[in-house]
Design a binder for these strands. Structure first.
Length: 281
DNA sequence: GGTTGCTTCCGTCAACCAGC
DNA sequence: GCTGGTTGACGGAAGCAACC
């Protein structure tokens, strides 16, 4: 349990509603110092070691060390105080869902097609297909999903609003599910279903590494990897901020509870003091 | 209406860290 | 050692209120 953190958060919450970013900046003043800016922080720590000795350096390194994740901290908090809800671990997409039936309320996910496109499943259950070659956001295609009238049990038909320039597209989705282009014609359909054969989980690259020969292909692959990394990090940043907000809310509620407890104990103490003084008289 | 300051949100980068 | 997840820092954009 990191009491230092709770105390610091209590101090923060006790003050005015300074934005978290500015609060952190003020804490890290002056300049662009950052507790986890590796080389910069290390250089500061090294300089202090020379001037202030090994012990001080170690203490400084402890201060500079990275904090545990919000989920970890909050779960530790909640283990100390059962009233505080835990941040739930990410559940697999097919958890709690009958086999073969897609989870329509699945969290926003990012997937990669065998044609180099990216598929994002939004909170609302819609599927967005983007082409990284067209600057990511541009070329976004949104698909509506419906479960009604599925031709086979457990399959979700995704009706494609636009004309697909590709043929025989196949989208692999974690959770032993696969999105496939299920029909041809004027209105191509997509299905999310459990594959009959074992498929690799997660991201499937557009081509096997052995098929990449030309520098252009390598560059495209590098660009694709970068786009994928950026999109994943984008989603991770959103999730991280959400957890941070939840973490701060929990800390604030904990502060409120502790303040109430403190007030109650002070009142009890005053009552006992009065009783003792009256008995002494 | 234009400007300014503040706040919030988001995307990106870079570093750290755990799991393999 | 590599890889992918996590998160602080930073900059930009947008919204809003106060002021001129």
């Amino acid at each position: 349990m990191t009491m230092e953190m709770v105390e610091s958060q209590q101090d923060d919450s006790a003050g005015d509603c300074m934005p978290e970013r500015d609060a952190v900046r003020l804490q890290n003043q002056p300049g662009r110092s950052h507790i986890s800016q590796g080389s910069e922080a290390a250089s500061i720590a090294d300089e202090s070691a020379e001037s202030e000795g090994i012990v001080d350096s170690q203490r400084r390194r402890e201060i500079l060390s990275r904090r545990p994740s919000y989920r970890k901290i909050l779960n530790e908090l909640s283990s100390d105080a059962p009233a505080i809800p835990k941040i739930e671990e990410e559940k697999s997409d097919d958890e709690g869902v009958p086999s073969g039936i897609p989870a329509m309320a699945m969290p926003a996910g990012l997937y990669h097609s065998n044609t180099g496109q990216y598929i994002t499943i939004t909170q609302g259950g819609a599927i967005q297909i983007s082409n990284p070659a067209s600057d990511g956001v541009h070329g976004l295609q949104t698909l509506g999903m419906t479960n009604s009238g599925a031709p086979q049990p457990g399959a979700t038909i995704v009706q494609y609003a636009g004309q697909s320039p590709h043929s025989a597209q196949q989208y692999f989705v974690p959770g032993s599910q696969v999105v496939v282009q299920a029909a041809t014609g004027d209105m191509p359909a997509y299905q999310i279903r459990t594959p009959t054969t074992t498929l690799p989980q997660g991201v499937v690259m557009a081509a096997s590494p052995g098929t990449l020969h030309s520098p252009q292909q390598l560059a495209e692959e590098a660009t694709r990897k970068r786009e994928l990394r950026l999109m994943k990090n984008r989603e991770a940043a959103k999730e991280c901020r959400r957890r941070k907000k939840e973490y701060i809310k929990c800390l604030e509620s904990r502060v409120a509870v502790l303040e109430a407890q403190n007030k109650k104990l002070i009142e009890e103490l005053e009552t006992l003091k009065d009783i003792c003084s009256s008995k002494a008289d």
